[in-house]
Design a binder for these strands. Structure first.
Length: 275
DNA sequence: GAATACCTGAGC
DNA sequence: GCTCAGGTATTC
């Protein structure tokens, strides 16, 4: 479920439960979710203390004692659960227990697209889990966004989903940000005025910040580490609203496929010839 | 770029 | 039975 706002909500809900705690034991029941392999994850985490919680795009980064890092990507259906006992749930693939014998951390992932990785130092973090990510979507400047989009020829929606360009925007927030900026998902960067790129940058920031404030979007069943659902799905203007009236002009929302992903937009407010 | 692959489940 | 699902890497 998680795009940048959901991962940020997970990070915030996790922080008070994790920082300062020392890992005792890691149990991996689905080896492919542990990188580079289960033994490295188990041995790397054992005895190390979590010193902070950070996020880059959709990647959770937990700095550890001795300059190591633990990274977690939730993929499409990943969920972190902090609880004293194993929840009555299927698809729990990794369990972390701590030296204080307090609540454990359970990694649940139905579709198995997520992962946990151990990085012994900053270099392996940057050449490993972080290698494929551009700047964080909440930290990138308008100038840098414009620069990174400049000579790309794909439709803008496809580019927003490309984590090499900027990290954190997924299908929901790409559609919602383009609606706010009144830009067609089919527009190419070369078609856009500099002013429109500024609007897009602003729309991305606004949409992501507002979603974080509302606890993220629980389209299917996203919950944070304490089991709380978000409410931003009630603020969606276009995402999964095919055929329903545009909140701005009442034209029915269209749905097309772009880069293999369903794409929702208002054909009037976001008309291609209006950028 | 588009298609496909990795997975399981919900909803029709 | 079929289509769709919020992510990403790899192939043609």
């Amino acid at each position: 479920m998680p795009e940048l706002p959901e991962v940020e909500c997970v990070r915030r809900s996790l922080e008070p439960h994790l920082v300062g705690r020392t890992i005792a034991r890691t149990r991996v029941s689905l080896p492919k979710l542990a990188r580079p392999h289960p033994k490295a994850l188990r041995q790397g985490l054992a005895g190390r203390t979590i010193t902070d919680t950070q996020r880059h795009g959709k990647l959770l980064i937990l700095p550890l004692s001795d300059g190591a890092f633990w990274t977690i990507h939730l993929g499409m259906t990943g969920q972190l659960i902090c609880a004293p006992r194993r929840p009555q749930a299927k698809h729990i693939h990794i369990t972390i227990s701590f030296q204080d014998h307090g609540p454990r951390l359970y990694f649940r992932d139905l579709r198995q697209f997520g992962f946990m990785a151990f990085c012994p130092d900053r270099h392996s973090l940057q050449t490993g889990p972080l290698a494929s990510f551009g700047p964080d979507a909440l930290k990138i400047s308008p100038q840098e966004l414009a620069q990174r989009l400049a000579h790309r020829r794909a439709p803008i929606k496809t580019l927003l989903l490309d984590q090499h360009i900027l990290a954190g925007v997924g299908n929901i927030y790409a559609d919602e940000a383009l609606f706010r900026a009144r830009i067609s998902p089919l527009a190419r960067p070369i078609d856009l005025h500099p002013q429109q790129l500024l609007q897009l940058h602003h729309a991305i920031q606004q949409t992501l910040h507002e979603a974080i404030t509302r606890g993220g979007s629980s389209v299917r069943n996203f919950v944070d580490a304490r089991g709380r659902a978000g409410t931003f799905q009630h603020q969606h203007n276009v995402y999964r609203r095919t055929g329903q009236p545009c909140p701005r002009c009442h034209t029915p929302i269209s749905r097309i496929t772009l880069g293999g992903r369903s794409t929702h937009f208002c054909p009037h407010c976001q008309a291609a010839d209006r950028g």
